[in-house]
């Protein structure tokens, strides 16, 4: 038991909490400064969490097999960059990206077809809604059996996982444009495709980006879980399952860190892209 560490962690926690309390009620007129403060507050909170983690691990001498302190995880990350990079390449750059593009693309095309045919919309949409709620990761063993151990089987899981959220959201988005706007397009004598590209797709963009954001997390989960069922000796899921077996928990946390970073970055990139494309949307227009 090392009380100094616990004390430091608690003091750090309380002081950041106090600072946040002050910052949160500040009324800042300058929008840039306000944005900086809005980023600073969660940063401080995160730092306090890390400090608390470190303090608890060191203070109570928690066995590193159970929960390694953040400093140890960081040491492992910096010392095994090459392994992490190889795993990242195998899982993310090959399986996730390929599956994500194919799944979202086919979901999008299917949504446009479904939207065109009312019969399909009535029939396929309830089924799609149901499937979107199903535990689709369960098909992972089947895909591994069909497409082999390498990344195509993981990409296949990702395709199936990302297809239905994209389908359901895009169909909902295509119905989002108002009747008045559609009537206006009608008075312009625009045909189906012109209405689609100039009115309905732009109006559907917030929904499509919503699906893309959901899918960016789903895709990573799908690829990693599919690797639990069989994989070549590289990949994030493979590394996690084998290093857990060898009780190298710091390596597992290093992989989780990479996964979290990849997940957050792709989510952030999509959010930025959304802001650029749907600049007209009320929630992004500058006030």
């Amino acid at each position: 038991m090392n009380w100094a560490w616990i004390l430091i962690a608690i003091v750090f926690w309380l002081s950041t909490w106090g600072i946040n309390q002050r910052l949160a009620v500040l009324n800042i007129k300058n929008p840039n400064l306000q944005r900086g403060v809005d980023i600073l507050i969660p940063m401080l909170f995160g730092a306090a969490l890390l400090m608390l983690w470190e303090g608890v691990c060191r203070g109570f001498s928690v066995p590193t097999v159970l929960l390694p302190p953040p400093s140890m995880i960081w040491a492992r990350i910096t010392s095994s960059v090459d392994i992490l990079w190889a795993d990242f390449q195998q899982t993310y750059l090959k399986a996730v990206v390929a599956g994500f593009i194919m799944g979202c693309g086919s979901g999008f095309v299917a949504a446009i077809i479904v939207d065109r045919v009312p019969f399909l919309r009535k029939g396929l949409l309830p089924v799609g809604n149901l499937v979107a709620a199903l535990p689709i990761v369960g098909i992972a063993p089947i895909m591994v059996m069909w497409f082999g151990f390498d990344w195509p089987s993981k990409a296949a899981v990702v395709v199936v996982m990302t297809f239905f959220p994209m389908l359901v959201n895009t169909v909902a988005g295509l119905a989002a444009s108002g009747q008045i706007e559609r009537d206006l397009m009608h008075t312009y004598a625009s045909n189906y495709w012109q209405t689609l590209f100039k009115l309905r797709l732009p109006a559907a963009m917030p929904f499509i980006f919503n699906a893309l954001k959901i899918n960016s997390t789903l895709a990573l989960i799908g690829a990693i879980v599919a690797e639990f069922f069989g994989t070549p000796i590289v990949g994030m899921g493979f590394r996690i399952s084998t290093e857990v077996g060898r009780m190298n928990v710091d390596m597992v946390w290093a992989e989780i860190f990479v996964a979290a970073l990849a997940g957050s970055l792709s989510y952030g990139a999509l959010a930025l892209l959304e802001r650029a494309i749907t600049f007209w949307h009320p929630s992004y227009r500058s006030k």
């Binding site: 909490w17 946040n20 309390q21 910052l23 949160a24 809005d38 507050i41 969660p42 401080l44 909170f45 995160g46 969490l49 990761v137 960016s216 997390t217 990573l220 989960i221 990693i224 879980v225 639990f228 994030m236 899921g237 996690i240 399952s241 857990v244 597992v252 992989e255 989780i256 996964a259 979290a260 997940g263 957050s264 792709s266 989510y267």
Partner: peptide
């Protein structure tokens, strides 16, 4: 305070593939 400090982390927590930690 909770709104400003917790909400971004709740969203970040979901960009982490949690299922990967499951095992």
């Amino acid at each position: 305070v909770l709104d400003k400090s917790l909400m971004p982390w709740i969203i970040t927590s979901q960009t982490i593939p949690i299922l990967a930690i499951a095992p």
